[in-house]
Amino acid sequence: MKIEEPIPALLEQFRSHPRFLITSHARPDGDAIGSVLAMAEILEQMGRECIVVFADEIPGIYRTMPNIHRVRLTRDARAVEPDLAVPAVVLECDGIPRTGLAGLEGRPLINIDHHASGRPFGVANWIEEDACAVAAMVYKLAIVAGVKITPSMATCLYTAIISDTGSFTYSSTTAETFAIAHDLSAHGANPSQIARDIYFSNPESKIRLLGTALSNLQTEGPVAWSWVTSHDMDRAGAGAEDCEGVVNYLISIAGVESAVFLREIPSADQYRLSIRSKGKIDVAQIAESFGGGGHRSASGCTLDGPLTVATERILQQLRTGLC
């Protein structure tokens, strides 16, 4: 396993402070949650105190993760740690705004990210665009730090990796990815149980909303798209987290090279977009052009409505990229 140069600098920062905030992006996914919880264990084994904080609720499919009770929800980090001398470890974010948290400005920031849109905004930065997940980077950090990979840490990291690689289907999946997964399994992660928790624990509302999204499916050559409105979500009794993964059904269509799913944001006349590619175009660049970001094959952004305008803006970019 290749050990990245920034790791010693990060460990030096960890040894220089007794207490840390740990957070990740708003609307947290499996990689954000699993990486943050594992990072807390690493720091505590190094003798540090930790506060785990997110701006948004934890999706239901991740609420069985070990130590999930530690997560504190707030929109202002000062509510849980008013001392601005306490550093924040920010995982999987290309900047402070991505966290959805106020109260990070003025703190020492330690930045660990794997997005193509990653930026060095911290006093210590580790950006590894080729990493399959931030969890893989956290795993490397644990190995170099010499801490014990506990069953709970292994479960969190495995959950993060399987979710951020699309169950080992994205192009970021390599032999090293499987080597890490193997080691995490050997240290107590239960692959079949984790898969059941993530993929076979959906609420009824999500399946009903999926039916609506699939009924809205449109295709045009190598491009597919669909959407749901706030009314659709209310009718299904669904929330934002129920929209996760819908776009994967669209990109799974034979002959489709890029897909986008649009979710209306209630009372905002805006749409949250999930964009996917099978590799022919870099959707991270497209998302960045609209103020979003992500990976070459999986990205997201937010566009102003109405729906017809937002749809045409993103389709124009996808069509041009596939020409």
Rank of each mutant, 00 (worst) to 15 (best):
His187Lys: 14
Leu262Gln: 07
Thr311Trp: 01
Pro151Asn: 04
Arg78Pro: 03
Val147Leu: 04
Pro108Ala: 07
Thr99Lys: 05
Glu129Trp: 03
Arg319Thr: 08
Ala175Met: 10
Val80Asn: 09
Gly237Met: 08
Glu92His: 02
Arg107Asn: 10
Asn111Phe: 04
Asp197Ala: 12
Gly60Val: 12
Tyr170Thr: 04
Glu129Ile: 12
Ala287Lys: 00
Tyr62Trp: 13
Leu184Phe: 07
Ser226Tyr: 05
Gly255Leu: 03
Ile162Val: 13
Val123Trp: 13
Leu104Met: 04
Cys323Asn: 15
Ala142Ser: 12
Ala32Arg: 01
Gln270Met: 15
Gly103Asp: 05
Ala154Phe: 11
Ile68Leu: 09
Ile22Val: 14
Gly34Ala: 05
Pro59Val: 07
Cys132Lys: 01
Ala85Trp: 09
Arg78Trp: 02
Glu288His: 03
Ile251Leu: 13
Leu10Asp: 03
Cys243Lys: 00
Glu57Pro: 06
Asp31Ala: 02
Gly60Met: 11
Asp113Ala: 04
Leu250Ile: 06
Tyr199Pro: 08
Ile207Asn: 06
Thr155Tyr: 11
Met153Ile: 02
Arg235His: 15
Ala32Met: 06
Gly95Met: 12
Phe261Gly: 01
Gly279Asp: 11
His25Ile: 08
Thr23Lys: 07
Asp94Arg: 09
His69Trp: 14
Gly292Pro: 02
Thr159Arg: 01
Leu322Asp: 10
Ile251Ser: 00
Val134Leu: 02
Pro222Arg: 03
Phe20His: 01
Val89Met: 01
Ala240Leu: 10
Gly294Tyr: 05
Pro191Thr: 12
Val36Thr: 15
Thr150Asp: 11
Ala224Phe: 02
Ser192Thr: 12
Ile149Arg: 00
Pro59Cys: 11
Arg276Met: 11
Ala181Phe: 11
Pro28Tyr: 08
Tyr62Arg: 10
Ile207Val: 14
Ser297Trp: 08
Ser226Pro: 12
Phe200Thr: 11
Val134Asp: 03
Lys280Ala: 12
Thr320Pro: 07
Glu128Ile: 13
Ala77Tyr: 00
Ser201Gly: 09
Glu244Asp: 14
Phe290Met: 04
Ser167Trp: 07
Gly245Phe: 05
Phe200Ile: 10
Ser185Gln: 10
Thr308Ser: 15
Leu91Thr: 07
Ala135Val: 01
Gly292Ile: 00
Cys93Met: 08
Asn125Thr: 05
Glu176Pro: 00
Ser230Cys: 08
Ala179Tyr: 05
Asn67Met: 14
Ile162Pro: 00
Leu109Gln: 00
Thr74Trp: 01
Met46Thr: 00
Arg319Val: 05
Pro59Leu: 09
Thr99Val: 02
Arg276Thr: 07
Lys280Glu: 15
Phe168His: 07
Gln193Thr: 13
Thr64Met: 08
Ala136Ile: 04
Val144Ile: 08
Ala287Glu: 03
Ile265Cys: 04
Tyr62Cys: 08
Thr219Ser: 05
Phe261Asn: 04
Pro108Thr: 04
Asp83Ser: 04
Phe178Trp: 09
Lys206Pro: 10
Leu109Met: 06
Val283His: 00
Leu91Val: 10
Ile281Gly: 00
Gly95Tyr: 07
Leu141Lys: 03
Ala131Gln: 05
Ala213Cys: 08
Ala254Cys: 11
Phe168Ser: 00
Asp130Ala: 15
Glu128Leu: 09
Glu220Ser: 12
Leu104Ala: 06
Ile194Met: 06
Asn67Glu: 14
Arg119Gln: 15
Leu91Arg: 01
Ile127Cys: 01
Thr229Ala: 11
Glu5Ile: 12
Asp130Pro: 03
Arg296Thr: 04
Ala186Glu: 15
Ala254Gln: 12
